[in-house]
């Protein structure tokens, strides 16, 4: 259990606030491999984590197609688990994509991503680093300087968690306005994280009852709504004590959905279909000194994707208390569970 909690903490920190302070990563050492190689390796290794986060951000917006009545509201907390596809458990390290790092056993090798299996050293390929700074002054910049096991994965699916997924926690407020319109807000003001960085979140969504425009609305057996939502999360984690170096994470997503739901007693079945998009930037900013050079803002990469999303879910409402769950089919299929208070 202790290990599970540690894993959960790491994952939550990793994705929603950024791991890079807690992880105590020695970025200076990273950069000794050269900026281009460091970017490429990090980008591929971290890819499922960032993409999973992007998928997870678009989940949990709604659990019914019926907007609140005027000044009705809900406060809802969700955790979305964006399941990492099996194909994203490994990435292909290709020698042709790197300058100073290579796999000596062939032109390419499969190696775990962050969300890959937790392999021991005997099962991991070794990556070789060239003496590109000619440390031994022999004029040979291509010789192998050192060989190190490729990074292993977290092995999340092997743990008590039992599902290889990126967790995305979220809290939001829904408020009924007029003419079948409801606005949803996700908001965390810029918040200091124990002096190690900060995080802020903003999201806004609008749900509008479209059933009211259809002839014979009263005869419709279901509620129908359109929904548009946008979420942005930014965080900055200081890498050094002087707070001149930071790992910066900025993720935004939006979704457009058609939503239908049917209430039967205290249960509401809902489903949605539409289009989603996410855009995640990660950067390592500041001035970093390697043994051979000074680098400014050396790491930057971006993950972006868009596609169709369909989901189905169930909400239970007991007086003001709501419990809900949904499963979304998208790039990273996502399971969301949540609890909330809903009035009117």
């Amino acid at each position: 259990m202790k290990r599970f909690l540690k894993q959960l903490r790491v994952l939550v920190v990793l994705m929603s606030i950024s791991t890079f302070s807690y992880a105590q990563i020695d970025f200076d050492s990273f950069l000794e491999a050269g900026v281009a190689d460091a970017n490429r390796l990090l980008e591929l290794y971290m890819q499922p984590a960032f993409e999973g986060f992007g998928n997870g951000m678009n989940s949990g917006w709604y659990n019914t197609a019926k907007p609140h009545k005027f000044l009705g509201f809900d406060v809802t907390a969700n955790v979305s688990m964006a399941r990492v596809p099996d194909a994203s458990r490994f990435f292909t390290f290709r020698n042709s994509e790197y300058e100073n790092v290579f796999f000596a056993g062939g032109s390419s090798v499969e190696t775990p991503t962050l969300f890959g299996p937790n392999l021991g050293a005997d099962d991991l390929p070794q990556l070789s680093f060239r003496d590109f700074d000619d440390i031994d002054n022999d004029g040979d910049f291509m010789e192998e300087l050192i060989r190190i096991s490729a990074p292993t994965g977290l092995g999340i699916d092997e743990s008590e968690l039992g599902i290889n997924a990126v967790p995305v926690p979220m809290v939001q407020l829904g408020l009924g306005l007029f003419k079948g319109t409801e606005v949803k807000l996700r908001y965390i003001p810029e918040t200091d994280i124990d002096g190690e960085g900060n995080v802020n979140l903003f999201g806004i969504g609008v749900m509008h009852d479209i059933g009211q425009y259809l002839p014979g609305e009263k005869l419709l057996p279901i509620d129908l709504a359109g929904f548009v939502g946008y979420t942005n999360l930014s965080s900055q984690i200081y890498v050094n004590d002087a707070q001149t170096q930071s790992a910066d994470f900025d993720a935004s997503s939006w979704t457009v959905q058609a939503v239908a739901s049917k209430k039967i007693l205290f249960a509401t079945v809902f489903a949605g279909f539409g289009y989603t998009n996410y855009d995640v930037d990660f950067g390592l900013n500041g001035t970093f000194n390697t043994e051979s050079e000074t680098l400014t803002d050396p790491i930057a990469f971006n993950y972006a994707n868009s596609g169709m999303r369909a989901n189905v879910g169930l909400r239970l409402k007991l007086l003001f208390l709501t419990l809900h769950g949904e499963y979304a089919l998208q790039e990273f299929n996502t399971l969301t569970v949540g609890v909330g208070i809903s009035v009117r």
């Binding site: 290990r3 540690k6 894993q7 790491v10 791991t19 992880a23 105590q24 990563i25 020695d26 200076d28 050492s29 990273f30 950069l31 000794e32 491999a33 050269g34 190689d37 460091a38 390796l41 990090l42 290794y45 100073n100 790092v101 962050l114 299996p117 937790n118 392999l119 021991g120 050293a121 991991l124 070794q126 990556l127 680093f129 300087l145 050192i146 060989r147 190190i148 096991s149 490729a150 990074p151 292993t152 994965g153 977290l154 092995g155 999340i156 092997e158 743990s159 043994e291």
Partner: peptide, 27 residues
Amino acid sequence: KTLLLLSIVSLALFGCGEAGVELDVTK
């Protein structure tokens, strides 16, 4: 202070897998 690139990530993630983190450094 060599360039372990992502190997360091693994180490740095303070052993999240059941098996912890294990890697070889050969020179």
